[in-house]
């Protein structure tokens, strides 16, 4: 009698619960650290310059997106950006009640962007795809936030003009930060702090 070796069935629930096969402990630690830094900068800038001050708003978004580009260069894996946004979102929710309603859709939007980037060859192909991933996911998140803002202001949609201006300013910060993050990746490689 002969027996053929069958591969052990994949425990998908466990894989999704623990990230086994997707992320190593060092990846999760790095994601946690970058999410913490992003939140710390946000808190500090909000305290120094006020949350609605256009300069701090742009600066906050710039630091955020630059950190995300660096994170994706250090952890170039599909799912890293979603996890980072989830952690930052949950922390904002726990501490400040931010994005209480929109969080699930923000997570789904980031995941969709990550699958698109994976289809383009994945983050390991270079920092330009990390830049694209952050640019698209931040755009998607702003569109979703605008939708929820519209729901809250549906009786007087003209009020949305203010929200649109705020979103545009913060996205300008995102774009500036993407450029800064991309330049910084090159420099950190030169310094030997990030390996190819």
């Amino acid at each position: 009698m002969s027996t053929s070796a069958r591969p052990a069935p994949v425990n998908w629930r466990r894989a999704l619960w623990t990230g086994r096969g997707l992320f190593e402990t060092r990846d999760l630690v790095t994601i946690g650290l970058f999410a913490g830094a992003a939140k710390a900068v946000t808190l500090m800038l909000a305290l120094v310059g006020g949350g609605m001050n256009p300069v701090t708003m742009i600066l906050k978004s710039a630091v955020f997106s630059a950190l995300w580009v660096l994170l994706l260069t250090k952890v170039p894996k599909t799912g890293a950006l979603t996890l980072a946004n989830t952690v930052a979102g949950l922390l904002g929710f726990f501490l400040l009640g931010q994005a209480v309603i929109s969080l699930p859709s923000l997570i789904l939007a980031t995941l969709a962007v990550e699958f698109l980037i994976a289809a383009l060859g994945g983050l390991a192909r270079g920092p330009h795809l990390a830049v694209l991933a952050v640019a698209l996911s931040e755009l998607a998140m702003r569109l979703i936030n605008l939708f929820f803002a519209y729901l809250a202001m549906r009786e007087q949609p003209e009020l949305m003009i203010m929200v649109l201006m705020i979103s545009a300013a913060s996205y300008l910060g995102i774009l500036l930060g993407l450029f800064g993050g991309w330049k910084m990746v090159g420099e950190l490689r030169h310094a030997g702090l990030i390996q190819d």
């Binding site: 420099e187 030169h190 310094a191 030997g192 702090l193």
Partner: peptide
């Protein structure tokens, strides 16, 4: 001799 090096290196 280190003038062109990155300070963090």
């Amino acid at each position: 001799g280190l003038a062109d090096r990155h300070p963090q290196s």
